Simulated assay, not measured.
Amino acid sequence: MDIGDMRRDFESEGLDRQHLNDNPVIQFENWFEDSRKAGILEPNAMSLATSGADQMPDIRTVLLKYFDERGFVFYTNYGSRKARELDENPRAALLFPWIGLNRQVRIQGAVEKVSKSESLRYFTSRPRGSQIGAWVSEQSKAITSRGLLEQKVAEMKRKFSSGEIPLPDFWGGYRVVPERIEFWQGRPSRLHDRFEYVREADAWTIQRLQP
């Protein structure tokens, strides 16, 4: 299938240096709020790229659950494929594709586990069904049928039929500590605006990149 003629021009006001906050986390927050107000579906959905010891790139969509000056946090099963890859190579890249606003944000950095108290705080805020799901799924492992998964759900519902559901010791959060953050604004004729923040010690430098 030849889809080479699929294209559209990106109409926007563009992005100038004077419109950028010197702090990329604040700039990210500003754009994140813009995406929420614009009705972008799941603006916290992000592509997470990892690569383990075999150097084979891997990518999937996860949900951002928290961010601040320390980094960008998501949660997963510590036995999952992504977790194994992060154990082998604790570096990752994130992509937020806010296509409806002709924008995207790319983030690269080192990855660390969040504290158990942070994981517990988020876990207890989840719906009960999601808490059960965390206990049930041996994420990324093969299973012969969905029926077995549903059977495990029923078993866990009986096990935790009363009281709070505890945090599994194999489940928790990761924080991507940013070293580079790029803000991309689509422009007509593919002459897009791109600004890259690079962390140097405790400060950020900003440079415009060619499209």
Results as ranks from 00 to 15, higher is better:
residue 7 R to W: 11
residue 142 A to R: 14
residue 107 I to L: 07
residue 107 I to S: 03
residue 165 I to L: 12
residue 37 K to R: 15
residue 138 E to R: 15
residue 175 R to G: 03
residue 26 I to M: 12
residue 129 G to T: 11
residue 86 L to V: 02
residue 187 R to C: 07
residue 159 K to S: 04
residue 42 E to N: 15
residue 67 F to T: 00
residue 150 E to L: 10
residue 131 Q to I: 00
residue 93 A to L: 04
residue 207 Q to D: 12
residue 1 M to G: 15
residue 34 D to R: 10
residue 202 D to S: 11
residue 110 A to K: 15
residue 140 S to E: 10
residue 158 R to C: 04
residue 130 S to W: 06
residue 53 A to V: 09
residue 46 M to F: 02
residue 38 A to Y: 12
residue 97 P to A: 12
residue 46 M to N: 07
residue 117 S to E: 15
residue 160 F to K: 07
residue 83 A to F: 01
residue 56 M to R: 15
residue 150 E to K: 13
residue 2 D to E: 10
residue 55 Q to M: 14
residue 152 K to Q: 09
residue 174 Y to W: 11
residue 165 I to N: 11
residue 25 V to E: 09
residue 110 A to Q: 14
residue 167 L to Y: 04
residue 103 R to K: 12
residue 202 D to Y: 04
residue 185 Q to K: 07
residue 84 R to G: 06
residue 180 R to W: 08
residue 89 N to P: 00
residue 101 L to C: 09
residue 195 F to A: 05
residue 107 I to D: 04
residue 50 T to G: 09
residue 5 D to W: 12
residue 15 L to F: 00
residue 134 A to H: 03
residue 196 E to W: 08
residue 85 E to N: 12
residue 61 T to N: 11
residue 119 S to W: 10
residue 88 E to Q: 13
residue 108 Q to P: 06
residue 24 P to T: 04
residue 1 M to N: 14
residue 174 Y to V: 00
residue 172 G to K: 05
residue 41 L to F: 14
residue 132 I to P: 02
residue 48 L to E: 07
residue 101 L to S: 03
residue 103 R to S: 00
residue 127 P to I: 10
residue 74 F to M: 09
residue 163 G to I: 00
residue 67 F to H: 15
residue 102 N to C: 09
residue 156 M to V: 11
residue 53 A to Y: 08
residue 16 D to G: 11
residue 20 L to S: 08
residue 113 K to M: 06
residue 5 D to Y: 14
residue 157 K to W: 01
residue 194 R to F: 06
residue 36 R to Q: 15
residue 38 A to Q: 11
residue 166 P to V: 06
residue 193 D to E: 06
residue 202 D to Q: 13
residue 208 R to P: 06
residue 130 S to M: 07
residue 173 G to H: 01
residue 85 E to H: 12
residue 98 W to E: 05
residue 47 S to K: 04
residue 91 R to F: 14
residue 100 G to V: 02
residue 171 W to N: 02
residue 40 I to K: 10
residue 84 R to Y: 07
residue 175 R to I: 06
residue 205 T to W: 07
residue 56 M to G: 01
residue 76 T to L: 04
residue 165 I to W: 09
residue 140 S to I: 08
residue 35 S to P: 00
residue 5 D to F: 13
residue 179 E to L: 08
residue 98 W to G: 06
residue 59 I to V: 15
residue 60 R to V: 01
residue 14 G to P: 11
residue 209 L to P: 02
residue 122 Y to M: 11
residue 3 I to D: 14
residue 114 V to Q: 07
